[in-house]
Amino acid sequence: MSWLRYGHRSLYDAALAVPRRRVLGVPVHCVERNFAELYQPHAAVEEAWTQVYRSQREYRNLPARTESLCGLNHQY
């Protein structure tokens, strides 16, 4: 994962900003972090994603978009 050495935001980091903007309880330190360090899981992030997947009608295509971004991220 060469992008970690350079401290760049991953596609998952970009995707995580969406539930943060939609006020789903994602702590700011999970979105605005030192990108040179590995992402550390957080219970509030997991709960936000759970809410998105449980309420797909409310969040429309957010789950599909996020999965697509994360899939791309793992390929590169």
Rank of each mutant, 00 (worst) to 15 (best):
S10P: 01
E58M: 09
Q75L: 13
R54I: 05
S2G: 14
L16A: 00
A43C: 03
R21I: 07
Q51P: 00
L38D: 15
L62T: 05
R20C: 03
G25P: 05
T66N: 06
L69P: 00
Y53I: 13
R9H: 05
A14M: 12
S68W: 12
Q51C: 07
L16G: 00
R21A: 10
N34V: 14
R60G: 06
R60M: 08
L62A: 04
A14P: 00
V18H: 00
R20V: 05
E58H: 10
S68V: 06
R65I: 15
P27A: 08
P63M: 06
R9P: 08
A43T: 10
E58D: 11
C70V: 15
T50N: 07
R65A: 15
A64S: 11
Y76P: 03
C30K: 05
A17K: 08
N61T: 12
E46I: 09
R33I: 11
E37K: 05
C30V: 15
G25D: 09
G7W: 01
T50A: 10
V18Y: 01
Y6F: 12
P63I: 04
R65Q: 14
R21F: 05
E58K: 14
C70F: 07
P41A: 07
W49V: 04
V31C: 08
Y59L: 04
Q56M: 12
H42G: 00
N61D: 14
R9A: 15
G7I: 05
L16T: 00
S55R: 11
G25V: 05
Q56R: 15
T50S: 09
N61S: 13
S10H: 02
P27R: 02
V23Q: 05
E47S: 11
L4N: 14
R54Y: 01
C30Y: 01
Y76R: 06
L24F: 02
S68I: 07
C30M: 14
D13E: 07
A64W: 10
R20P: 00
A15E: 06
R5Y: 10
Q40H: 07
R33C: 07
V45I: 12
R20T: 06
Y12V: 03
G71Y: 11
L69E: 09
N61V: 08
L24P: 04
T50K: 09
S2V: 14
L4I: 14
E47C: 03
E46A: 12
E47D: 10
N61H: 11
E32D: 14
V23W: 05
W49Y: 06
F35S: 02
